[in-house]
Design a protein around this nucleic acid. Structure first.
Length: 732
DNA sequence: AGCACGCCGACT
DNA sequence: GTCGGCGTGCTC
């Protein structure tokens, strides 16, 4: 076929990545007289609408009829083109996740406001020589405040001079002041490297020095592995200071939940200002400012949730992933990625250091450290000098509480002691509601969710039976729906509400607080209540896993884990790891500032490697045992490939399926996690050992799918997501 | 007939 | 991801 459209000469066309799930870039005509380069952000027609995309380096692989080509409708000249490293990163992530590059680009271009320059702020300035008709004391104060001749915003001026806005309006009206345009405000002023130097203890100093030395290595990874309270944050703050000294920007990634006021205040204490924030709840206006600030270099330090990893930093020189073991770094929808792994990739591409920090590192990070791929920096002691809490097992087989109670006598004694001294106790049980299972005493009927076959959990405050899997709920009935007997329903096992009931009966005078995500009032109430605990406004706190994260409770002396075995046998190959991390974080809350914390683990299996490692306070015991256990179970070596695959079109259904599967066949284990194209390919090519641990909700030929993918290239398949948890180290 | 809903394919 | 087209099935 002959295409002879003279306009479609190569210099008039451009590859544009559009934010939709198509396999590659599309071709557009560049408007006459205009110029674009790779990275230029443009608006293009796509189907019936217009979308924002970016000019890309890759050539479209299908030649299309030049007559079909549409023309770029707008070039965002005020937005800095995305640099080559960021473009490589986008391509890399797309390849890794089997996703469309356009969908990854979409994560970069998530702020529409960012693409246009911010409207200048109106301000006022003194007109040289002009005087008001009458001088009043309010006018006097305004003019005195403006002595320096600089321009002010109206609100800033009225505040500074202590007058109302109408005084300024009056002066404007008289021609004494004029309206001028002020440049838009920065999202935050630059941090001051020398604002308040921290006194580091020798271990912290050594770690900080190594992090600083890492800047000369052009891209290396450090695992900062320190017990709760060891001052990891202060140590990596020194790396941030070093990045700034070298004129580089820094990014701190935190799991969403930990984006707390508390952390921002710590940053302010060291650097004099709050860092720029980036997370899902930031307002569009601020979002635009931070995006633009990152791209222009006006913003030097960003603290954000995982999506901050896709900001277009002009000169990024450091990424810190704090609480690197946290599952919140994994995105499960749209482009499934692990921000921790992709941070490592971004650092590798741009050749700058990446720091992973945790008191309970993930097994794969520990393995990478042991193998020498990561620099391993250990902070063995609390920075304050406070001792680590003394942990004790309470063997429920021998010293458990009486029937129908859940707190063992020894733990009760400890609570009593702390309460008597005015110190706080935390009781941890990772189970919301009153009781996890309700059954009929007469006929044995068990309340089950009609959607997903999980047990319905009684929530006594709300008078409901709730499915914790799919959110389905129903009223607690008066009589058994199966045999009709009235008053025959019995609650089995404890939830936090039931523990609270027991605590209240044993300590009727104590101030008892339940911290659970499902209580009415939402995040605001939780934030308030966390603050109450922090300030000592509660004596006994009963909490689910949300007490494990982010917050620091300085007055907590005793921590009691009601059921330390919970979660150890739930069919997830990471069960031991997750439990270790959770209990490690929770028990770390004890005695963090006030010396001599006490921890109790109520357990039926005190010899389980997770429990005994926690008791020995030697974290290495856990990693050694866990690595050996996974080897023995035939799981592939870490960093090669762990696990599996599959969630179906309906994730709830898939989860329910996996649960019932592991109940029916305890040896079948399942995980759903994130993963890479290369791993899938390697799997098909037989380069890696793997074991299929879970099965898709429907009969699914994984091997066949992968082969097809190999033969025909990536093809989005409806209703299927391939998710493999693998460490990108092998592919860098 | 008229419309709500779901599935499918195209989008340069 | 988003839209339009088209089929199915149900209601005014």
């Amino acid at each position: 076929m002959l295409f002879d459209k003279p306009d479609a000469e190569p210099d008039n066309i451009a590859s544009v990545l559009v934010p939709v799930a198509v396999p590659g870039a599309y071709t557009y005509l560049v408007p006459p007289g205009e110029q674009v380069q790779p990275g230029t952000i443009v608006r293009v027609p796509l189907g019936t609408r217009e979308v924002v995309g970016a000019v890309w380096d890759i050539e479209p692989d299908v030649a299309i009829n030049p007559k079909k080509l549409k023309t770029i409708t707008h070039i965002y000249k005020d937005a800095r083109p995305l640099d080559a490293n960021l473009r490589r990163f986008v391509d890399w992530v797309a390849n890794w996740t089997l996703g469309a590059p356009g969908m990854v680009l979409r994560m970069v271009l998530r702020s529409e406001e960012a693409l246009l320059p911010e409207a200048p702020v109106p301000g006022v300035r003194r007109i040289e020589g002009a005087e008001p008709d009458r001088m009043t004391s309010a006018r006097q104060r305004v003019l005195a405040t403006m002595e320096d001749g600089l321009a002010w915003t109206k609100s800033g001026l009225s505040h500074a001079a202590g007058v109302s806005g109408s005084v300024i309006d009056g002066l404007l009206h008289q021609g004494v002041l004029e309206v001028v345009s002020l440049p838009a405000a920065l999202p935050t002023p630059p941090p001051d490297i020398d604002f308040a130097r921290t006194n580091l203890n020798p271990a912290q100093r050594r770690a900080a020095d190594q992090l600083i030395a890492a800047f000369d290595e052009g891209g290396s990874i450090s695992l900062v592995d320190g017990v709760t309270g060891s001052g990891k944050t202060e140590v990596y703050f020194e790396a941030i200071a070093e990045a700034m000294r070298r004129g580089k920007q820094a990014l701190i990634l935190l799991p969403e939940i930990a984006l707390t006021e508390q952390f921002l205040r710590r940053f302010e204490k060291r650097f004099g200002v709050y860092p720029a924030e980036w997370h899902s709840e930031i307002t569009p206006k601020k979002r635009g400012r931070v995006w633009r600030g990152a791209a222009s270099g006006d913003v030097r330090v960003v603290i954000g949730a995982r999506s901050a990893l896709f900001l277009p930093f002009v000169d990024l020189g450091l990424i810190i992933v704090d609480e690197e073991h946290d599952a919140a770094f994994k995105q499960d929808d749209r482009v499934p990625y692990s921000a921790r792994d992709m941070a490592v990739v971004r650092g590798h591409i741009s050749k700058f250091p990446v720091i992973l920090a945790s008191a309970t590192p993930s097994v794969e990070s520990r393995v990478n450290a042991d193998l020498g791929r990561y620099r391993h920096l250990v902070l063995p002691e609390r920075a304050t000098g406070a001792a680590m809490p003394e942990l004790h097992a309470i063997d429920m087989r021998h010293e458990g509480p009486e029937r129908g109670h859940w707190i063992a006598p020894r733990l009760l004694e400890a609570i009593k002691g702390a309460y008597g001294d005015g110190a706080q106790t935390l009781l941890f049980l990772n189970r919301r509601g009153y009781a996890p299972l309700t059954l009929c005493r007469t006929c044995g009927h068990r309340f089950q969710c009609g959607h997903c076959s999980a047990w319905l959990v009684e929530h006594r405050f709300q008078k409901r039976l709730v499915c914790h899997h799919c959110g389905h709920f129903e009223k607690v009935p008066e009589s058994c729906p199966s045999c009709g007997t009235v008053d025959s329903l019995v609650a089995c096992g404890p939830g936090v509400e039931r523990i609270a009931e027991e605590v209240c009966s044993k300590f009727p005078e104590a101030r008892v607080l339940v911290l659970s995500s499902d209580l009415p009032g939402g995040p605001d109430r939780l934030r308030r209540e966390m603050k109450i605990v922090e300030e000592g406004g509660a004596d006994i706190v009963i909490g689910t896993q949300l007490v494990a994260k982010g917050h620091n409770f300085p007055k907590m002396r005793v921590v009691g884990v009601i059921d330390a075995d919970l979660g150890l046998a739930n069919g997830d190959p990471r069960a031991a790891e997750k439990t270790f991390q959770l209990l490690g974080q929770v028990t770390g809350r004890a005695g963090r500032v006030t010396g001599g914390g006490l921890g109790f683990l109520q357990t039926y299996s005190p010899d389980h490697p997770v429990i005994s490692a926690l008791l020995s306070s030697n974290m290495d015991d856990f990693y050694t045992a866990e690595i050996a256990a996974r080897r023995a179970a035939g799981l592939p070596p870490f960093g090669r490939l762990a696990a599996v695959i599959v969630s179906g079109p309906d994730k709830v259904f898939a989860d329910g399926y996996v649960r019932s599967l592991s109940r029916a066949a305890p040896r079948v284990q399942a995980v759903t996690i994130l993963g890479p194209a290369e791993a899938a390919l390697a799997m098909v090519r037989g380069r890696y050992r793997f074991r299929l641990l879970a099965i898709a909700p429907r009969q699914f030929d994984l091997q066949g799918y992968m082969q097809h993918w190999l033969d025909c290239g990536p093809k989005p398949t409806k209703g299927l997501r391939v998710q493999i948890d693998i460490d990108p180290q092998h592919f860098l």
